[in-house]
Simulated assay, not measured.
Amino acid sequence: MDQRVMLLAPDHVSDELGGSYQDACQALDLEPTPGGYAIYLMDTMNHRTTVICANTGPVRQAKQDYESGGEGSLVNALNLDDILDIRIGWPEECGGGPRCQFCRNPDPTWLYEGADVEVLLGAPPFDIGSPQVIGTDVVGCMDWYACDVCHELIQAADQHSWHRLLDQYGFSHVPMPVQAAWCEFWLNHRRPEPAPPPAWTPARRRATANHLRLHWDEWAARYPLDDVVFTNEPGRPELAGVDRALAIARAYLHQPPPPGRIRSYPAGPASIVRADGNDWSLIGRTDSHAIILLDDVPEVLHPLKGPQTTSLLRGLEELIGAP
């Protein structure tokens, strides 16, 4: 079982979620309580579950231990009495969108209609070890996502490719229940189709902003601005959302937003600055350019550059340290 833990509290909101504590609670449909939450992201048997707990003490202690050079272990930190809610899947900001169901690649490119499998388990021999698989039931159809690599193995449909697909699981041993479900899929699936792009949502906009921050140099190399035509013309309908977001970001300079809506990260001699609003995100490097993402304009990166952009980014960064 893989496990990640995220602290959500008035004094800490993860970069994946971004924004203020109130923003993050609203995004996760949680009440912004003073004590905050510990959010456990479980990945068990190829299924993801989010467990929300009220007790943040173990997470804070582990975080403090890790920052002091320790391991930051959270073994046995989850107490059943502290659980407030259990949800299927993960928040989209934390990687909860579609993924390859074989290697867990977060960018699947193919979609299969395959068997929805219920694995029947029995007690292990002599009650020692893991439960044993005693059978499978196909209870319907479901979507199976696959990346390019796993797709090629599935399409090859030979014994060697089956074993290579098992190797894609990423661990030394694929649990037998997982193997049983995969085997039913291997024998019962339709022709693949290209996977549709995930829906553009506020959560995906925030996740994209964080991804841009983490991989700024890669994005800048992939989308060079040398051929982009910039304009300062006011009143262009196609730029109305950008103008509105910029106006709100500039207003932050005079009326600072709640803590967390502006973030800054070292980037060599410069900084990468991120600012969030209710339906937009601004991410930029103080010595280069910036990008605006809008909820109502899906999948579009709106680039900005020039002295005004640089001044805005630096002004926003200065607010972080202001009293």
Rank of each mutant, 00 (worst) to 15 (best):
A27I: 02
R104E: 14
I292H: 01
P177T: 06
A270G: 04
V174I: 12
V51A: 01
V138A: 05
D137E: 14
G129D: 12
D148R: 15
T201P: 01
N79Q: 12
P266F: 02
I52N: 03
L304M: 14
T286P: 09
G97W: 03
L214I: 05
V138N: 09
W110M: 13
P10S: 08
D226A: 13
G315N: 06
T309K: 12
I154E: 04
R250D: 12
A267L: 01
E184H: 05
R314F: 00
A156Q: 15
V229C: 04
C100T: 08
S172H: 12
L225I: 11
I292E: 01
W200H: 01
A247P: 03
R274C: 07
T44C: 05
W280A: 09
E318Q: 15
S130K: 13
P194K: 06
L304D: 07
P258C: 06
E193C: 06
A267H: 10
P106E: 08
H160T: 11
G35Q: 12
P266A: 01
H254K: 15
L120W: 00
A245R: 04
Y145E: 02
Y169T: 07
E93A: 08
D137I: 05
P131Q: 00
A181M: 06
M6W: 05
Q64R: 13
L239H: 07
L84T: 12
P124G: 08
C141I: 03
F171N: 07
D11L: 09
P197A: 14
R274A: 08
I52Q: 07
R164C: 01
W186L: 09
N76E: 14
I320A: 09
R204S: 02
T231R: 10
E16K: 04
P266I: 02
P202W: 00
Y21I: 03
Q132N: 13
R205F: 02
T231Q: 07
T286E: 03
D287G: 08
L282S: 04
R60I: 13
P91Y: 07
Q159R: 15
P269C: 00
G241E: 01
G129S: 05
D287H: 12
T56L: 11
E152K: 15
D143G: 13
V119Y: 06
G284Q: 04
E317F: 00
N232H: 12
V138R: 13
R206Y: 01
R236D: 11
E218M: 11
V119H: 11
D15I: 04
D295V: 06
I291S: 12
A209E: 09
G114C: 06
N79M: 05
A290Q: 10
N76L: 08
V133W: 07
P202Q: 05
S130F: 09
I88D: 14
L17Q: 08
G241A: 01
G89T: 00
P257H: 07
L74A: 04
L84I: 13
D81K: 11
L78C: 14
P298Y: 01
E193A: 10
S73K: 11
W110G: 02
P198S: 14
P307H: 12
D226F: 06
A27L: 13
E113A: 09
G284N: 10
P32C: 05
G129M: 06
G140M: 05
R263S: 07
D15W: 09
E299W: 04
L78M: 15
F230A: 04
T50Q: 13
A221H: 15
G95E: 00
E299F: 09
C147I: 03
G18Q: 00
E218I: 11
H12A: 11
R204I: 00
H47C: 05
Y40L: 06
G277H: 02
I292A: 00
